[in-house]
Amino acid sequence: MSKPLIQINHLVKKFGDNVVLNDITETINQGDVIVVIGASGGGKSTFLRSLNLLNQPTSGEIEFEGTNLVGLSEKQLDAVREKMGMVFQQFNLFPNMTVLENIKLAPMKVKATSDANATAKAQKLLAQVGLADKADAYPASLSGGQMQRVAIARALAMEPDVMLFDEPTSALDPEMVGEVLKVMQDLAKSGMTMVVVTHEMGFAREVADQVWFMDQGIIAEKGDPEQIFTAPKEARTKDFLSKVLAQ
């Protein structure tokens, strides 16, 4: 029995009158790879960004490693966020820094790691994502797939307890999706807890421990990939899957 890492209680997020997350209560256990799928506008990204409070919930609780994050000060949140790595659709690398500097920045600033240690660690991570030769390149000279792999390495440099992926392959040219998914798959195998918002159904099927289908601000259905993809119970899950799998 694995222990809960993130406990979500009655999470509600409203933008004005628009209810984006409608009372979600779920548990994410240590080592889980959870893939969140669903149509655009279903609240997937908002849900993910609520987990590290990049989006402030309207009400409800996010308990991470036993601490409720809602209501913490920005300073207290900084300490939490370093344990929750995040990868963005648009990579968000820092264009004014080299690849190596991108990865070293947070360990040196936040954890006061020495330059030498941070560099060694960064080089190891770059090798892990297959970009050892790009250490001194600037982001502008990289392809999308390379940038996203650097972004993953950058998040991993903080040695997080969970990795949040917000549509990590949506902005990539099709031929580059594979290289990023491969890195993510390796990461999952290593036992990292992961929450992945994606449209890559193949990845969900192969890598996920659980697939959550989100619709209209709630987790409409969840289950292991086999069950969700072959025998969905909910009509709207069926409807969504028939649309995306037909493509």
Binding site: N52, G85, M158
Partner: peptide, 8 residues
């Protein structure tokens, strides 16, 4: 967002 998510 990227910087803050790293704990900066």
């Amino acid at each position: 967002e990227a910087a803050r998510s790293l704990g900066l």
